[in-house]
């Protein structure tokens, strides 16, 4: 039973002559516990597919079921609740609140889940320890390196123990050594906690850490390959 099922997912931007088809009918299944990498050139639709999966964007047509729930039937509020309950995000641009410390950033998702301040601090500190930033808790993002910022972002995504972790070019802004650290961290999370991960990447080296690589081109899935790793 797959966690995610895309059937004929289409996403069209703009109107009239300016219409751009970002996704032109995609069928895709992701099983629970799987680590999938999306690859493809810029504008091939891989990020759009990820955003639709994360309920950040709405498909123009097609069916998306998440845990057997038809997401396309949901109103904004329900999609936001689904996102809050099951999904964590890691972005290329980190997207940390610039004037909040590392630990405050990690606490943020817990604020919206009604968890007490003391418990939030405890969970957030534990998660920062997990990603190796115990000594950087009270630093502002601007005082952290890119790799450290991305680890804060990963801690923030994981602190709610989401079933699905979506990563949009998580290593895109990092050098090779930092990229290796981040991808190793994601792989460990997938292995140890069984969290399903879908990651968009440009780099074949990074994609190699996934179980399966899906290649996008012109809004369609061009091919899929297994890396030999298994859940």
């Amino acid at each position: 039973m797959s966690l995610i099922a895309f059937r004929g997912i289409t996403r069209v931007y703009g109107q009239g002559d300016a219409r751009v088809s970002a996704l032109a009918g995609i069928d895709l299944d992701v099983a629970s516990g799987e680590f999938v990498a999306f690859m493809g050139p810029s504008g091939s639709g891989k990020s759009t597919a990820l955003n639709v999966m994360g309920c950040l964007d709405r498909p123009t047509a097609g069916s998306y079921t998440f845990r057997s729930l038809e997401v396309t039937d949901l109103v904004d509020q329900e999609r936001a609740r689904l996102r809050r309950a099951w999904i964590g995000f890691v972005f290329q641009g980190f997207h940390l609140l610039p004037r909040s410390t590392a630990v405050e950033n990690v606490e943020l998702p817990l604020v919206y889940r009604g968890i007490s301040a003391a418990r939030r601090r405890e969970l957030a500190e534990h998660m920062l320890d997990e990603v190796g930033l115990a000594d950087r808790r009270h630093h502002l993002p601007s005082a952290l390196s890119g790799g450290q910022q991305q680890r804060v972002a990963i801690a923030r995504a994981l602190v709610t123990e989401p079933q699905l972790l979506l990563a949009d070019e998580p290593t895109g802004n990092l050098d090779t050594a930092r990229s290796e650290e981040i991808i190793a961290l994601l792989a460990r999370v997938n292995r140890e906690h069984g969290q399903t991960i879908v990651m968009v990447t440009h780099e074949p080296d990074m994609a190699e850490h996934a179980h399966r690589i899906v290649h996008f081109r012109d809004g369609r899935i061009e091919s899929e390959q297994r890396t030999g790793r298994t859940p």
Partner: peptide
């Protein structure tokens, strides 16, 4: 706006 986007992405409802 960006901050609002981050908050929504990490679970803030409308």
């Amino acid at each position: 706006t960006h901050e609002i986007g981050i908050r929504m992405a990490v679970g803030a409802l409308q």
